[in-house]
């Protein structure tokens, strides 16, 4: 028996069929709104970001310093311990230079390319990083292992958000 017999349907529509209105399309635009409570651990994390500081949480069970902070150690499944400040510096673990925004639309020419990176935060356990953006660096100069420091928004503009750090820059 040939498997081709059991491949059916999946009728491809052409650009022309779509654009010329030969097929019927029902459109809708959902408007979903949410107000998320930031919780105990992340609530404190955001409050500290507003002050221009990065806070982590220690575990009592496995000697880790966790960032973002959590109320429990997900590995040992025990309550976490003391709050502890970590540095606002770190090391680039990996990065990308992007030509697209989140919705896959292209970055217009002349606009800066977003440079997402995983940054291992100094003072947290080895390998504990956060995702953020890089700035004040030419794309071709970004390297894995590069030391970077947070660039904070002016205090009056901070809202208690991950974007209170505008980006990380080499130092």
């Amino acid at each position: 028996m040939d498997h081709k017999e059991f491949i059916r349907g999946g009728t491809a529509l052409s650009e022309d069929e779509i654009k010329s209105g030969k097929i019927f399309v029902e459109e809708d635009a959902l408007d979903c709104r949410y107000a998320w409570d930031t919780g105990v651990a992340i609530g404190r994390y955001l409050a500290e970001l507003k002050k221009g500081k990065i806070i982590a949480k220690k575990t009592n069970c496995c000697d880790r310093i966790m960032i973002p902070p959590r109320m429990f150690c997900e590995l040992c499944y025990r309550p976490s311990g003391a709050w502890t400040y970590v540095q606002d510096t770190g090391v680039v673990n990996t990065f990308s230079i992007s030509n697209i925004y989140y919705d896959a639309s292209r970055v217009p020419s002349g606009e800066p390319n977003p440079m997402p990176a995983v940054i291992e935060i100094d003072g947290a356990s080895k390998g504990m990083g956060i995702m953020h953006l890089l700035g004040e660096v030419k794309p071709e100069d970004v390297k894995i292992g590069m030391k970077v420091k947070a660039v904070w928004k002016p205090e009056s503009e901070r809202t208690g958000s991950i974007t209170d750090i505008e980006y990380f820059k080499p130092y």
Binding site: F6, I7, R8, G9, G10, T11, A12, L13, I18
Partner: peptide, 10 residues
């Protein structure tokens, strides 16, 4: 069994 995989299917 399976369908064809299309960019946009009818």
């Amino acid at each position: 069994g399976m369908t064809k995989f299309a960019r946009r299917a009818l």
